[in-house]
Write a protein that binds this DNA or RNA. Structure first.
Length: 565
RNA sequence: UGGGGUGUCGUCAAGUGGCAAGACACAGGAUUUUGGUUCCUGCAUUCGGAGGUUCGAAUCCUCCCACCCCAGCCA
């Protein structure tokens, strides 16, 4: 559990709910719901809504339902409902026995529609989609009444029954609410509430060929479930009068309050199902679970913890203004969590061979290493040391710049938990001039990395024993987009043009310390000095270790180096 | 140029007539066998702008400006 779980920060929705409870509105009940449409995978933006809805219910000892808003069979699939269910469980939320589907209510919804027709509040309109658009008017010009608006109740009842029983083709008729074609709010210009779709539904199959629209079904589903606070995003503000209209006209005793908040935007990525689906369909990423995706399943595979995501959602707040949260905050949250919980381990991403000239050929020492400086309770392990090692290529410079504390010709550094070593010579490839091997000497008096004489070394390097280390593949992930706001830029440029071509770098010859043999899929480690990594949960096998880099460690040397340029 | 919303630090965000919280980021410094972690310090005399009310305004009033959403038989 994270420390912030119990201290929610104030926000306007919480204030509304707290006040409602205080004055005993809804008999003091708090009942929210999370209502995804199963037309894609959940992303971090949904996590904000999930944490808000479930969090409010928990805080005020209420309930939160899970409801699949499955009213459009052309876009929805069981694959998505299953993915959503497993993402929600992984995030750590529990809806008890309150898993619902709007499709559960199709019969009841249909009865409500009939009631509206009988009350003269709805009519069957036989305009084509295009004609409907023309009749609707524009932002500045009022619409015109449909010629079908004055059909009799009997005729409407008959036609709607015909729609339901499959007598008509898709698009030939719709059921519309009779409100006001001159309303300045376009949503109130006789909105469509039922349309014909002769398409199999993932749950009701071909039982229905008419499906209710969002504006009709959502408020009614909320009311049926006796929801008290119906929380949605800002773009539904204009739909609120319609939400209220339906419930008022039907005179329902349970009339939930719709409250809107700003959806999450995150820098360097996009959070829209449509755009994410585009990336998946065009093969620009490897599916919804690609570790670069801001989807819950992508983030999970990347190595994030549910706790870090929930903590992030608590920290970003809830408000009505459009905003873009810095990706650095998400990264901070996962580092904070992983720092406390992961064991440290040594792995060399880009190996450079090092021979310790004065170390006996056949000798191997088992050196003790601490598993976590954050938690001594995690104990220690043995790491083998021998004459031939690998260190990180980045840790050697033939011509070290200022403030470079690592290895260079003639320099002495500490090998973590091992010895002080001094670089005595450099072997280069005759053709390319590339450094391919270092020769060092070690000081036997510094075993464990301490020196009796108190002399100091500036740098401590991670390393592995060449013959004992394991080969591994490591995937380094970076931001998916180069632009901070790829979705929200002005102008016409396609968001995909700012995709980061270097968002994935695969390293195949990495060397990992032997304690990682058989590491479980999904298990997380800190590779010292490099970052947090997890064993990939998809591409694993007995003979192959694959790691995903969740996030780098903060790197103040990188900043210094950048400043020097 | 219809309607609905929103403007508080680089980025989020509290604040609802009485001294502008906090977090991230950033910049310094201390500790450190991870250039990690941790710790300390600094970082909005001013709240989109201009007027007004008031002893007192980010909060109330007036006007203006900017940005976001709405013309699916999507949600």
């Amino acid at each position: 559990m994270t420390t912030t779980d119990s201290t929610p920060s104030p926000n306007f929705i919480r204030n509304i709910v707290a006040e409602d409870v205080r004055v005993n509105k809804n008999e003091g009940r708090v009942h929210t719901r999370f209502p995804p449409e199963p037309n894609g995978y959940l992303h971090i933006g949904h996590a904000k809504s999930i944490c808000l809805n479930f969090g409010l219910a928990a805080e005020f000892k209420g309930l939160c339902n899970l409801r699949f808003d499955d009213t459009n069979p052309t876009k929805e699939e069981v694959e998505y409902v299953e993915a959503i269910l497993s993402d929600l469980r992984w995030l750590g939320f529990d809806w008890g026995d309150r898993l619902f589907y709007t499709s559960d209510y199709f019969e009841q919804l249909c009865e409500y529609a009939v009631r509206l027709i009988k009350d003269g509040k709805a009519y069957v309109c036989s305009l084509s989609a295009e004609e409907t658009r023309e009749y609707r008017g524009t932002l500045t010009k009022p619409g015109k009444d449909s010629p079908y608006r004055t059909r009799s109740v009997e005729e409407n009842l008959d036609l709607f029954q015909g729609m339901r029983s499959g007598e008509f083709e898709d698009g030939s008729h719709v059921l519309r609410a009779k409100i006001d074609m001159a309303s300045p709010n376009l949503n109130m210009r006789d909105p469509t509430i039922y349309r014909i779709r002769k398409v199999a539904h993932h749950r009701t199959d071909d039982k229905w060929c008419i499906y209710p629209m969002y504006d009709f079904s959502h408020c009614l589903s909320d009311s049926i479930e006796r929801i008290t606070h119906s929380i949605c995003t800002l773009e539904f503000e204009d739909n609120r009068p319609l939400y209220d209209w339906v419930l008022d006209e039907l005179n329902l005793d349970c009339h939930p309050q719709q409250i809107e908040f700003a959806r999450l935007n995150l820098s360097y990525t996009v959070l829209s199902k449509r755009k994410l689906l585009g990336l998946v369909e065009e093969g620009l990423v490897n599916g919804w679970e690609d570790p670069r995706m801001p989807t819950i399943s992508g983030i999970r595979r990347r190595g994030y913890t549910p706790e870090s995501i929930r903590n992030f959602c608590d920290r970003i707040g809830v408000a009505k203004r459009d905003s873009v949260v810095d990706m650095a905050l998400l990264e901070h949250c996962v580092r904070e969590d992983l720092n406390k919980r992961t064991p440290r381990v040594m792995g060399v991403l880009r190996p450079l061979r090092v021979v310790i000239d004065n170390y006996p050929e056949d000798q191997v020492e088992e050196l003790e290493a601490i598993n976590s400086p954050e938690d001594p309770g995690m104990g220690t392990r043995k790491v083998p040391f021998s004459r031939v090692l690998y260190v990180e290529r980045d840790d050697f410079r033939e011509d070290p710049p200022k403030k470079f504390f690592r290895l260079g010709p003639g320099r002495e550094v500490r090998l973590r938990y091992a010895y002080y070593v001094t670089c005595v010579s450099v072997v280069k490839d005759e053709q390319t001039g590339e450094v391919i091997e270092l020769h060092c000497t070690y000081d036997p008096e510094t075993r464990g990395g301490w020196s009796e004489d108190g002399r100091k070394v500036r740098g401590t390097l991670h390393w592995v024993s060449a013959s004992h280390s394991l080969e591994a593949e490591v995937r380094l992930y970076d931001r998916l987009f180069e632009k901070a706001n790829p979705g929200g830029e002005k102008g016409r440029a396609d968001f995909k043009t700012s995709l980061n071509p270097n968002s994935l770098e695969t390293l195949t010859s990495c060397r990992i310390e032997p304690s990682l043999a058989g590491a479980a899929p999904g298990s997380r480690y800190q590779f010292e000095r490099l970052g947090y990594f997890c064993v990939d949960s998809v591409d694993v096998s007995d003979e192959r270790l694959v790691f995903n880099r969740t996030v780098t460690l903060r790197d103040s040397w990188a900043k210094i180096e950048k400043q020097q340029k």
